[in-house]
Nucleic acid binder design. Structure first.
Length: 200
DNA sequence: GCATTAACCACAG
DNA sequence: CTGTGGTTAATGC
């Protein structure tokens, strides 16, 4: 696929593709971190955070004319765009590739179900704890990291207002579960956060 | 009723 | 963009 691939780099904050525009390529995220988001009837909703390596636009490109969601870099990022016909041809001719792709898509769908339930049923503290553990374990693999989102964006990810996010993070800090300085976060008591994640 | 939770508003830094 | 305080509506015991 490399032959039909154009590589592009994006800085933090730049739009990779936008909801409402024509979707003509599959996007492969080579390095970096991206937020996938949708402008809903009320406000922006962050659907998920995607880290490299990953395909970004399969659902919105494979059988759709117009992008149903946007992707925006939240860290410096490099992607390559794969021509949709090339991609489809690959699926048809390469069974192994297709098999891997189905597995990846299934995983994402299951994760999406889980996030959906958690967003709807957990309280603010539980959702914040979830998000912080997600960044620690799934994104940065480090107890210490810089949050790549503003308080408002984090709220849009977990379904809470920016005020609730601020307050909850301040409480977790005061209670000694985490250490916070602006966007710098350090997870101090992961086990406690897991309890909070489950019980609120 | 009373407590809890989180959204909404406002204002300061 | 954040943090915080006051207020308020909804919900549970």
């Amino acid at each position: 696929m490399n032959k039909n691939c154009v590589q592009v780099t994006y800085k933090k904050g730049e739009t990779i593709f936008k909801q409402g525009s024509f979707s003509t390529n599959i996007t492969y995220l080579r390095t970096g971190l991206v937020k996938v988001h949708i402008m809903g009837p009320e406000k922006e909703q962050i659907i998920k955070i995607a880290k490299a390596p990953a395909y970004l636009g399969i659902p919105t490109t494979i059988d759709e004319e117009i992008n149903r969601y946007s992707a925006t870099a939240i860290m410096d990022t490099s992607v390559c765009y794969i021509d949709i016909d090339t991609f489809k041809n690959f699926i048809v001719t390469n069974g192994y590739f297709s098999h891997e792709l189905v597995i990846a898509l299934c995983k994402e769908e299951l994760e999406s179900y889980t996030r959906c339930v958690n967003r709807a049923q957990k309280n603010a503290a539980g959702k914040i704890a979830d998000a912080l553990l997600f960044f620690k374990n799934d994104i940065f693999n480090s107890a210490k990291f810089t949050l790549p989102l503003s308080r408002e964006e984090l709220g849009n990810l977990i379904d809470a207002t920016r005020e609730s996010v601020s307050r909850t993070i301040a409480e977790l800090n005061n209670d000694g579960f985490i250490k916070v300085s602006g966007k710098h976060i350090e997870i101090l008591k992961e086990e406690s956060l897991k309890m909070i994640s489950q019980n609120g």
